[in-house]
Design a protein around this nucleic acid. Sequence first.
DNA 1: GCCGCGTTGTTCCAATGTAGCATCCATGAC
DNA 2: GTCATGGATGCTACATTGGAACAACGCGGC
Lengths: 166, 166
Amino acid sequence: MGFEFAPRTLSLLSHAETICAGRGVRLTDLRRQVLGLIVQSEAPTGAYELLDRLRATRHNAAPPTIYRTLDFLLENGLVHRLERLAAFVPCIAHDHPREQAHEPGCENPGHAAQFLICRRCKRVVEIADPALADALAEAAGRAGFTLGQTTIEAEGICAACDAAGK
Amino acid sequence: MGFEFAPRTLSLLSHAETICAGRGVRLTDLRRQVLGLIVQSEAPTGAYELLDRLRATRHNAAPPTIYRTLDFLLENGLVHRLERLAAFVPCIAHDHPREQAHEPGCENPGHAAQFLICRRCKRVVEIADPALADALAEAAGRAGFTLGQTTIEAEGICAACDAAGK
DNA sequence: GCCGCGTTGTTCCAATGTAGCATCCATGAC
DNA sequence: GTCATGGATGCTACATTGGAACAACGCGGC
């Protein structure tokens, strides 16, 4: 390896290392580097922007390079994809290292998360509100629906921008 | 006009006519026809599939034709876009013709809705659960976030498929 | 060594969405 | 009726996002 990362990035990367080791999958240089790029970003980042940044050090990266790597990171719950933006953010739920119970046959390895996307500064807040997840589960249940993966995203104005910008 | 539509389609279309009249916008032949195509579909429909179907009667339709029309239908709350599928479904909330309170400056003319997407039959159930919307509003409020448009979509297995397919 | 399989490289292509400008047409003023 | 206006549509080209298929590499165990 040998890439220059900030402390917070290194912390999340070492956590990712632990996750991957526990799952028996390999966090290769490429995957670590892409995860680093995502963690370093202030705002959600598109696949092709990640590809451009990746090419600074990996000259021959192509679209499949970045998409396969993103698939890996998504499958292992290390990043999230924001559907409204077609962009990616790191999963920060590991900051609270309470592990997920992992029943077999569950095709959703990541935790359920919700996102607040500021339309002004473009930053994203990841929340993990059990009441919200429960409300969706209950509504689905009333409709006789067996729940798989869920997408909860809201666009709006974050507290900082609300205070700053009039 | 003069297109052949089923009764349910005609009902939603006439309702759309009312909505547009109330808002002072024009439900043209093109817009009515595209809305009809969406309402007739059993499952969410992509923009390019709608374009193909539209070309059966409107030979010179091009991508901007369908996207501009979809923008109109979205802005006026007549259809929804499913982010996970990049596909469109009719808005059926008008079946309960309780009108939305419409404060000025609100950039979200449509109602907040939630969607359950069956991965087996590809059909979609639109729900409008106030408890769910409230839970999201409350979680956003706790984060100091001013809420705009929201996206709540879940993938899973619908009741019919769960009963039928073992 | 060398085999096997996961990972990566490489090319091409599919699907989705938009910019910009020309043209048409319904509507209202006169 | 005529004309001006602004919204709606036609049309070309392009941008963005994502994936299929196959070759080549490389680390593991044997």
